[in-house]
Design a protein around this nucleic acid. Structure first.
Length: 399
RNA sequence: GCGCAGGUGGCAGAGUGGUCAAUUGCAUCAGACUGUAAAUCUGACGCCUCCGGGCUACGAAGGUUCGAAUCCUUCCCUGCGCACCA
């Protein structure tokens, strides 16, 4: 299979704005891509959780572009390193995952990224590897020479560690091993390029160092943007509820994009869609609401196809713009015909009675657009009523 | 090993015998306003409640006390300093 070296196409990929930084330099990377050499490109993930969001998606989309150029791409699951926990982010120790948990997470991942990468390609499918394959076999005898390639000063220099050091927050010895191991991945797979988030540059550079020292090979580090909010610097995260999850059904995904801050519109266009930059400018001129709907549509389309994306858009307009209520609310089957509002809410997934009571007192509950104010009220159901909890949650009640 | 300082709700961080289910900030939820954006305002934010209150909680286990997040004992964990250091 030959490598596509169409200059315009390659340059577009590199210049779009998805790639933040390339080490040693962008120009040399461009040269490499245009050389016609088949490259081995990998990206690594910790399968510690099974929830993926859009910032994961953007990495796979980029990887797919390289695959389509004809390069060998590898999705590496850091099942071994996941047990250590990447010191990037926080200081919490990660739970050790069992083999089954890892397997399940990986299965979920593949299912979620299937729309983004063509795993069924016969000639050049993406490869999926696990770093336990080589890391679990390393002995101390192997580890020591690896560790001797780095100094403690180099490790401590790292922002994360420096901060913790200065604030008397624990730094565990094994955390120093993390960059070593991630670096060794590059050696074991003998890759040419590592794709990673800008927060991973330190780890990726460890791999670059090892490649140079052990194999005398120049490994490129392609750092992609993290899709941070340009105004606040915040990342998409689960805890803040700002994430758009790949596992969400179309309607939810559409809504999650609409709930993004305005500043994210352009970021989303650039990273998740492949609409030409000039066109994006025009779309942004249509105003924030329109532009956001446009990008939401594009994103849902990517995962679920045009038809479902259109439905999701219509649904959103009907529910939130026109406040007409959903066409297809999730169904909630009830055992009893006569039920108190309180019990009804518990059935719908509210965790505690106190919380349910609170919601009622705050006028957050309505049935068929009628606000219910008494938690004890017994209602008798005919079936088909729409229960609304807060502004986002709807249920169709069935007997 | 010795000494010192700590361990409080999702996080940060007050509180040092009763008025503490625990100040405050962030996050979260609801309502108003809106474009399910932002900003702003209001309220809620352990569990149960016949709304009087009850129950469970401040690293763990015991104890003192009418009463403990707060005092004592032991244990576990963390940081800092000292010592040790093939």
């Amino acid at each position: 299979m030959s490598i596509i070296t169409d200059k315009k196409r390659v340059e577009e990929i590199v210049a779009r704005g998805v790639i933040a930084e390339v080490l040693p330099t962008k120009d040399e990377f461009l040269k490499l891509l245009l050389s016609g050499k088949k490259l081995k490109i990998y990206i690594g993930f910790d399968p510690t959780s099974s929830t993926l969001h859009l910032s994961h998606a953007k990495n796979f989309i980029l990887l797919e572009e390289f695959r389509q150029l004809g390069h060998e791409v590898i999705v590496l699951f850091g099942d071994f390193t996941a047990q250590i926990g990447d010191p990037t982010g926080r200081s919490d120790a990660r739970p050790q995952l069992t083999e089954e948990e890892v397997k399940k997470n990986v299965k979920d991942w593949i299912a979620q990224i299937k729309p983004l990468m063509n795993f069924d390609d016969k000639k050049n499918p993406p490869r999926v590897l696990f770093n336990s394959a080589w890391l679990s076999k390393l002995s101390l005898k192997d580890l020591i020479p690896l560790a001797s390639q780095f100094t403690v000063q180099q490790m401590i220099e790292r922002d994360m560690f420096e901060k913790r050091w200065n604030n008397d927050i624990p730094i565990h010895l094994h955390e120093f091993l993390y960059p070593l191991m991630q670096g060794y991945d590059s050696v074991a797979m003998d890759v040419d390029v590592e794709l990673c988030g800008t927060d991973q540059i330190f780890n990726a550079l460890a791999g670059r160092t090892l490649m140079k020292r052990l194999k005398n090979k120049e490994k490129f580090v392609v750092a992609v943007n993290l899709m941070a909010n340009p105004k606040t610097g915040e990342l998409m995260s689960k805890s803040r509820g700002t994430g758009v999850f790949l596992s969400s059904p179309p309607n939810e995904m559409f809504g999650a994009v609409m709930a993004q801050p305005d500043e994210m519109i352009e970021v989303l266009f650039i990273n998740i869609t492949r609409i030409p930059l000039n066109d994006i400018k025009e779309i942004l001129n249509t105003g924030p609401k329109e532009a956001k709907m446009h990008v939401a549509f594009e994103i849902v389309k990517k995962f679920y196809g045009e038809e479902k994306a259109t439905l999701a858009k219509d649904e959103w307009i009907s529910v939130f713009s026109k406040k007409e209520g959903p066409h297809n609310a999730p169904e909630l089957k009830l055992k009893k015909k006569n039920i108190s509002i309180l019990d009804l809410l518990l059935e719908s997934g509210i965790k505690s009675k106190s919380e349910a009571r609170r919601l009622v007192l705050q006028n957050a509950i309505s049935i068929d657009s009628e606000v219910k104010k008494n938690p004890e009220e017994i209602i008798s159901l005919k079936g088909g009523e729409i229960l609304k909890v807060g502004k986002k949650t709807f249920f169709k009640l069935l007997k």
